[in-house]
Simulated assay, not measured.
Amino acid sequence: MQKLDILYLTDLYYKAQGRNYYEEDLYITSQLKDHFNVLIGHPQQAIDHIDKADLIVFRNTGPVVYYQEYFDQFVNSVKVKNTPTFNSFDGKADMKGKQYLLDLYAQNYSVIPTVEKIEDLDRLPKSDQYIIKLKNGADSIGMQSVSKEEIANENLDGKIIQPYIDFEYELSFYFINNEFQYALYAPDKHKRWELMPYEPQSLELDFASKFIEWNNMKCGIQRVDACKLKDGSLLLVELEDLNPYLSIDLLSEDKKHFFIDNFVKALTALKA
């Protein structure tokens, strides 16, 4: 059987605190090459190479806000050419900015309380400190922490407001399509990228799965980031549905093989 040709998009030179993008993608492509013909490409040089691929894998490409116009052209090009992509570009979460946090909070989902107008602060729990994020931001770009007194003087155009949440720790759930793969957590909330394996309870998996079901993507890898409160409940921090970092180096060999096997099956199914 002839191998499928994959255009695997990644920015091997992107620098992110606590994460080595290039190591993760070099490992993944080293595993995929046994099943596919893999061409590694830069996300800002992808359009000219679409015709060389049976399918495109969009991985650790950095925040697309840095090259939004090119990314929009790329998405349009793959749609016109009907080239399968993984992830599919039909997500409703971080792929489209932070509007989903406003929407989900308004619909009473278990998310960090979020508003975008100063006059809506009374919809948030009382707090002496607020977190302001760019509505179309990613990777903590433009994030600010301001006091209750300072927030009235902030320009909030294109931003969202959240109260400071005193949580126990952060944890992340990783999915391929709608299937749970593994979970990691940061025992020290001040060192959010020092992660360890985590065995979630069934109620925690139910929590994460609800957001995967809500997003209803055709295909892709998604990461549900949550924080655990002192009372044991969970709140959604973000749903990364475009190019989530996987921290795959922290997994046991068995978990790595499990993930890669399911990744191969999911990619193969796109052209079945």
Rank of each mutant, 00 (worst) to 15 (best):
L4S: 13
L4Y: 14
D5E: 11
D11N: 09
Y13G: 12
Y14P: 06
Y14A: 09
Y14L: 10
Y22Q: 14
D25A: 09
I28G: 02
L32I: 07
K33D: 13
F36E: 04
H42M: 01
Q45T: 15
Q45R: 13
I50W: 05
D51H: 09
K52Q: 13
I56V: 12
V57L: 07
G62F: 09
V65L: 14
Y66N: 15
Y66I: 06
V75H: 07
V75I: 13
N76L: 15
V78M: 08
V80H: 10
K81V: 13
P84L: 08
P84H: 04
T85I: 08
T85Q: 03
N87K: 10
M95W: 04
M95P: 04
L101W: 01
I112E: 05
I112S: 02
D120W: 01
D120F: 03
D122A: 15
R123T: 14
L124Q: 06
L124I: 04
P125G: 00
K126Q: 10
K126Y: 10
D128Y: 04
D128E: 09
D128F: 06
Q129M: 11
N136Q: 13
N136H: 11
G142E: 13
G142D: 08
V146Q: 09
I151V: 07
A152Q: 11
N153W: 14
G158A: 03
I160L: 13
P163C: 03
F167N: 04
E168P: 01
E168L: 09
F173M: 08
N177P: 00
Y185E: 02
P187I: 05
K191I: 00
W193Y: 15
E194H: 07
M196W: 04
P197S: 01
P197M: 01
Y198K: 02
E199M: 07
P200I: 03
S202C: 05
D206H: 08
A208L: 02
K210I: 00
I212F: 03
E213S: 14
Q222W: 08
D225Y: 02
L229P: 00
L229D: 07
L229F: 05
K230C: 04
K230A: 05
D231K: 01
S233R: 09
L235D: 00
L235C: 08
E240Q: 04
E240A: 09
D241C: 00
D241P: 03
N243A: 15
N243M: 12
P244F: 01
P244W: 01
D249Y: 10
L250C: 00
L251V: 06
D254A: 12
K255E: 15
F259K: 10
L267R: 11
T268A: 13
K271M: 14
